[in-house]
Amino acid sequence: MSAKTKAKTKDGLRIAGDKRASIAGSSVTKEPVDSWLDRLLSRRLVFVMGKGGVGKTTISIALASVAERLNKKILLAEIGDTDAIGRLYGNKTLTEVPLRLTQHIWGARVDPKAELEAYVRAHVTPGFIAGKIIRSRLFEYLFDATPGLKEVMCLGRLWRWEKEENSPARATYDLIIVDAPATGHAMSLLRLPDLLINMIRVGPVANQIRGLQRLLKNRQKTSLVLVSLPEELPVNEAVEFYSMAEDTLDMPVAATFINCVYPVAFSRMELQQMASIESSARDFPFSAVNKLIAAARILIRRQSDQQKHIKEIHAKSTGHIQEIPFCFTNDLTINQIRELSSFIRHHH
């Protein structure tokens, strides 16, 4: 493997994932037609999980853009209150009602309270009592006080979107991509059905929880995707997440996206050449050439730090690993995310 890794790359911007793919391609015969990406996008529900700030929204949109090219109808569902998806699509505000963002992509925000109200209206008769419940302070109180109720309502909303049909036997959305909440413990949302079923045993909410459990644990229908950064804490969390997803949730991670990976820009021979230029110009430490090399060294150092963390993900992950190149920007635009999606299509 190391001999192949050393192989000179023609293009300085090729990234590590690129290389790895070519390594895999040479030892295994060509990837099967049914690649991990095809399989992932053939699910009904894909949860994009990960620590805050790792780029879940970016990956959610990039995946939606890949699926869009397959003529799928996609719903991008945002849980939480950040409005990140809407902001990227021309400062739109997403609500409980899906809004068409592109020809094939819809966007919506999951509103747990609206969902619970819909539940009360559906299950409590007569209607004026339902209205009274919804308006009561007690309802407000219980909504906040019942542990996990908000989360289970979020999941319930997703479940109903999954079931929605716009004509008999034709689902409204082929694929629902969930930009999961950025809690430190991304697990808690998906663990809830298992926990809550012990608390809420009867009634319509209990029935919904059972339905949800069936949907979430069906590997043909639901997949987990993890987004991480090649840094210590996100990788630690990723490693923890793999085992919990498999053991506690029984929902193994299907793919990991490592975001913001610095390009592997220099071959060993080039590094040697740089060193010899530096030593021959030792008397001119502030020469322009040395300054350029010093700048390159910053990137090389960061890149090699990152590779250590990436190695750890490779050692511990379940499922496919996809590296996403760093774009050298603080604020990706929707077009840059679309470029990332073509990167994913071509390099998966």
């Binding site: 619970l116 539940y119 009360v120 299950h123 409590v124 009592i129 339902a130 009274k132 419940i133 009561s136 007690l138 309802f139 219980l142 019942t146 109720l149 608390m199 809420i200 045993r201 009867v202 009634g203 319509p204 909410v205 209990a206």
Partner: peptide, 12 residues
């Protein structure tokens, strides 16, 4: 109100 709530959430 409580009755309605318990119908949805369960009495537990």
């Amino acid at each position: 109100v409580l009755k309605g709530v318990s119908k949805v959430l369960g009495k537990q």
